[in-house]
């Protein structure tokens, strides 16, 4: 008995060690540094709240946090609709497993290129002289190229959706595959319409997948800074960019304070979502 107990401790130890070393300690360090002071070149241990006072007192910071939440909300809603539709199609309309896997792999295409290449490749599509504008102008729908297609909040959202829809598809597809097909047959036999089957059977049973996907998407969008910078042509700022600007200017304590606030707000968001669905119970 004791031996088994020791064994399970030993088995858990490596992972615990790794998590403490590389997750818990760094986060504690960030929290500690957020109370330090900094001048032009150096920062030194201290315990004061200036970094937080500046952050909460700055209109720009509020605006940037607002924008970050708004982006996360929009991208979440769009990826949810698209991701759910794709997963639904893959799980219930594609008959053979071979085709399911082949089509599933296709959804990973956006990850085959690097960020820089992606950023450049949007220009010929969405730019002033890009394909979209030329097509619209050729069809006589618009007279002047649409400016807001590129380097705008639209293009940032588009890039996020393009990138992160996969993170919705995977978990939703996974839970849908596990739905017992006989439940759907039973619903149909009971006289339910297709829409009723969707809302009363499939959506409730897919909830855990939807929740996991939502957590991925929200956490990724809120922590991003590269996509926002490239796709807005540096004209929009989200929280990630505030942090990276601070780091570039050697203001580590202020960057740490922003990071702590971001971490807490992401945790709160995810905590609230988990209150709605108990993932563990549903799995």
């Amino acid at each position: 008995m004791r031996r088994a107990n020791l064994n399970s401790w030993l088995l858990a130890a490596p992972l615990t060690g790794v998590l403490v070393m590389f997750l818990i300690l760094p986060i504690l360090l960030i929290v500690a540094v957020s109370f330090w002071t900094a001048d032009a070149f150096t920062f030194r241990p201290d315990f004061q709240f200036d970094n937080y006072r500046y952050l909460f007192g700055s209109a720009v910071a509020w605006k940037v946090f607002g924008l970050t939440f708004m982006m996360a909300g929009i991208v979440w809603a769009v990826t949810l609709v698209i991701g759910f539709t794709i997963a639904f199609f893959l799980a219930f309309h594609v008959r053979t497993q071979k085709w399911q896997m082949a089509l599933f792999l296709l959804t990973t295409i956006p990850f085959w290129t690097s960020n820089i290449i992606r950023m450049i490749s949007w220009i010929p599509l969405l730019g002033k002289n890009g394909l979209v504008n030329q097509t619209l102008m050729g069809a006589g729908i618009i007279d002047e190229p649409l400016q807001w297609l590129l380097y705008s909040s639209f293009s940032v959202c588009l890039a996020f959706v393009h990138l992160y829809t996969l993170f919705m598809v995977v978990p939703i597809f996974n839970t849908m595959m596990r739905i017992d097909k006989s439940l759907i047959e039973a619903a149909r036999d009971g006289g339910a319409s297709g829409f009723q089957i969707l809302t009363n059977v499939i959506i409730p049973l897919s909830k855990p997948g939807i929740m996991i996907g939502s957590i991925f998407v929200i956490a990724l969008v809120m922590s991003d800074f590269v996509t926002t910078r490239f796709m807005s042509g540096s004209q929009l700022a989200n929280v990630g960019r505030l942090i990276s600007n601070d780091i570039g200017l050697l203001q580590y304590p202020s960057a740490a304070a922003t990071a702590v606030v971001l971490l807490i707000s992401v945790l709160l968001t995810i905590g609230a979502m988990l209150r709605l669905v108990d993932i563990r119970k549903e799995l």
Partner: peptide
């Protein structure tokens, strides 16, 4: 000027400035 839409984008790295100019943006 930024609020009035004067700027198409800002650039930070060398290659960004090249792309903006070469593409006619």
């Amino acid at each position: 000027a930024k609020k009035a839409g004067q700027f198409r984008a800002f650039w930070k790295s060398f290659d960004e400035s090249v792309n903006l100019m070469a593409s006619g943006e």
